[in-house]
C-alpha cells in the first residue's frame, strides 16, 4: 500500500477502499476495525459458489482529524461492486453506533469543550446498493443505516465522500442523500437508478447508458453541485477530499445542519419546488437545468477543469441558506 504522503497525491478514483480510509484522516491515525485479519467474511457467498472477501468489501475504523475522532466507512467497488450484504451492512451500522457512543462519552468527559472533540462519521461510498446474493439481509441493513442516521441527527455530523468509480446508487443512493454533508468530485456519481437499469426499464430513447457524457452530466459531481445536492466539489485526489474534510470539521455543527437537503418538513417543501420545476421546465437534459440556473453556455461547463468550473458555475439558490 502507498504511504500516507504518497496517497495524498494519488487519484481518488484509483485508490482502493483501504487506501481511502487511511488517506481521509490525519497521517498515521487510522485503526481498522474487523480487518481482514479478523476473518469475518460473508457466510452467504460460499453457498452460492462465490468468492469471499475477508473484509466483505468494506473497510471500517477510526482516525483523527485534528482532535476529532472520525469513524470511517469505506466501500470497495472491486468486490461485488461494493454491494451491501449482511456483514458489510453490519459494519456500516456499527460504525455509526460507535460514533454515537463516542459522542456520549466525549460529552461526559469534556462537558465544556466537547465540540472541539465532536466525533464524526465519514462514508466513502462506492456501491450499487443491495447485494443480490444476500438481498434480503442487505435490504434490512439499509433500513438500519437510515435508522442510525436519524439517531445521529443534531448530535454528530455524517459526511458523504463520493468520488469512486462505481458511484453511489440503488438503496445507498438515498442513504447518501440522507447524510449532512456531501463532498463529490467530478468523477463521483450519485443517484437512485443506475444508467443501465434506466435503459433496461425505459428504453434506449429515454436513456442511452453507453453515452458516458450523458451518464456523467445526469448524476455526476458537477450536476449535483449545481443542484446543491452536493455541497462541495473537489479535485480527483485523496488530498482534495481530505482537505475538504478538514475544512468541514472547522465549522460549528449548526452550520453543518444547513448543508442538509432532506430531513425536515421545510426541506421537503423546498424539494417539492424543485419537482414543480421539473414539470414546468420539461427538462430533457441536465444542461437545460444548468441553463435555467443562469449558465448561459452549459455545454462549456462539461469539459471545464474543476478550478475554472467552481469559478464560473452558477448554482441553484437556496432560500434556507
Amino acid at each position: 500500500m502507498l504511504s500516507w504522503d504518497e496517497l495524498q497525491k494519488a487519484k481518488f478514483t484509483e485508490a482502493n477502499a483501504r487506501e481511502r480510509a487511511f488517506g481521509l484522516v490525519d497521517k498515521g491515525t487510522f485503526t481498522e476495525f474487523v480487518s481482514p485479519r479478523d476473518r469475518m467474511p460473508s457466510p452467504h457467498l460460499p453457498v452460492l459458489g462465490e468468492a469471499i472477501g475477508y473484509d466483505d468489501g468494506v473497510v471500517t475504523g477510526i482516525g483523527l482529524i485534528g482532535k476529532r475522532p472520525v469513524f470511517v466507512v469505506s466501500q470497495e467497488g472491486r468486490f461485488i461492486g461494493g454491494a451491501v450484504g449482511e456483514v458489510h451492512g453490519a459494519k456500516m451500522v456499527q460504525a455509526i453506533k460507535l460514533a454515537l457512543k463516542a459522542y456520549e462519552d466525549v460529552k461526559v468527559k469534556y462537558p465544556d469543550s466537547y465540540e472541539e472533540r465532536l466525533p464524526a462519521v465519514v462514508i466513502s461510498f462506492e456501491t450499487g446498493g443491495v447485494r443480490l446474493h444476500e438481498s434480503n439481509a442487505g435490504l434490512l441493513a439499509h433500513a438500519e443505516v437510515m435508522d442510525q442516521f436519524q439517531d445521529a441527527r443534531g448530535k454528530i455530523p455524517i459526511i458523504a465522500v463520493i468520488g469512486s468509480k462505481i458511484g453511489c446508487f440503488g438503496g445507498m443512493g438515498f442513504v447518501g442523500a440522507a447524510t449532512d454533508v456531501i463532498i463529490m468530485s467530478e468523477q463521483g456519481r450519485l443517484g437512485l437508478t443506475g444508467p443501465e437499469v434506466i435503459e433496461q426499464e425505459m428504453g434506449k430513447d429515454e436513456f442511452d447508458a453507453s453515452n458516458k457524457a450523458l451518464v456523467f452530466r445526469t448524476t455526476g459531481g458537477k450536476h449535483k453541485y449545481i443542484m446543491q445536492d452536493a455541497n462541495f466539489l473537489v479535485e480527483d485526489s485523496v488530498a482534495g477530499f481530505y482537505q475538504q474534510l478538514q475544512e468541514v470539521m472547522k465549522l460549528p455543527f449548526a452550520e453543518i445542519e444547513k448543508f442538509r437537503r432532506i430531513g425536515s418538513k421545510k426541506l421537503v417543501e423546498e424539494q417539492l419546488e424543485l419537482v414543480k420545476l421539473a414539470v414546468g421546465l420539461g427538462a430533457k437534459d441536465s444542461m437545460d437545468v444548468w441553463k435555467y440556473y443562469g449558465n448561459e453556455d452549459p455545454a462549456k461547463l462539461v469539459d471545464m477543469g474543476p478550478d475554472e468550473f467552481l469559478k464560473v458555475a452558477k448554482r441553484r439558490e437556496r432560500k434556507l441558506g
Binding site: A177, G191, A278, D285
Partner: peptide, 8 residues
C-alpha cells in the same frame, strides 16, 4: 427522476 434526485 435522476436529474432532480429521486434518491432525495
Amino acid at each position: 427522476e435522476e436529474i432532480f434526485g429521486m434518491n432525495k
